[in-house]
Design a protein around this nucleic acid. Structure first.
Ligand SMILES: [Mn+2]
Ligand SMILES: [Mn+2]
Ligand SMILES: [Zn+2]
Ligand SMILES: [Zn+2]
Lengths: 139, 139
DNA sequence: ATCTAACATTAGAACAATTCTAAGTCAAGA
DNA sequence: TCTTGACTTAGAATTGTTCTAATGTTAGAT
């Protein structure tokens, strides 16, 4: 789903399309590195010096609630965000703190709505380890 | 793996078995509800009034590094811990904030050591939604 | 075009979770 | 007994997130 489709969807659902909301969504569209809130905030601040942290948090929460972005709790104590909302696995490297997409096929939970009587609303398949780049560094 | 086996393993690996470490591990052994650090700390404090938060954090980190307990980052901004280290899925109810074990068979990642060139050290398959108890309440 | 009420943004304070610090305690070996 | 290193403690500091109250903006009604 490209940027304009998401912006249109937001608009059609009655959400005011402020310049800040546009900027946050656009930033995630252009930066598929699963940035932290801090990263998003300071990056936006460069082009947009008056944007506030509260707005960044509010906007991320809003976009998440509209189902347009995904929140990632893979790293202890801080949030990452992802423009891509289609279910996919994430790999966290505890050496360099990067979050990678990984493609896993054949997940038995794919498409399931319920498990053990609980209603599934979101899947967060996380994998922790050492990434390929850091494995090479190790020497 | 029962409590004595884990205590023995700790001891054999040269780790001093202090009363605090014993207490934290025992608490997790007896409380399989995936407690938060706060819960662990205040529960231990009842029987053991001088235990400090730093010790609880240090001990949880130490036990995790020995592979005797598991850290869970399913809830935004706070840690839960699990005595059980065998790979299993966790379900987080965003209504009541409980963490449940769920049994999922046929995970294609089971036993895998590598993915996309990254070294897998830990699996954290999280599922978010509304638990069976909260679904009933909703009525 | 102007008014108005609801909504959005801002800066910074407040808060919550975790980590750090420095002093004190304990245990084992010389 | 003395020394050394490891452990614990209370509380301060730090970090990430949420709240607050003032200000600014938007969109619909007039
Ligand atoms: Mn992703
Ligand atoms: Mn569990
Ligand atoms: Zn890495
Ligand atoms: Zn529930």
């Amino acid at each position: 789903m490209n940027l304009n489709e998401k912006l249109t969807e937001l608009n059609e659902k009655g959400c005011t399309l402020t310049i800040q909301r546009h900027a946050v969504l656009e930033y995630l569209y252009e930066n598929r590195t699963h940035p932290t809130v801090e990263k998003i905030y300071y990056s936006l601040k460069e082009k947009f010096s008056t944007i506030s942290k509260a707005t960044v948090y509010n906007t991320l929460e809003l976009l998440k609630n509209y189902g347009l972005i995904q929140e990632i709790t893979i790293e202890k104590g801080k949030l990452h965000f992802d423009y891509e909302v289609k279910p996919h696995h994430h790999f966290f490297c505890h050496r360099c703190n990067h979050v990678y997409d990984v493609d896993v096929v054949g997940c038995p939970l794919a498409g399931k709505k319920m498990i053990d009587g609980h209603k599934i609303e979101e899947m967060r398949p996380y994998i922790i380890g050492t990434c390929s780049k850091c494995l090479k560094k190790k020497g």
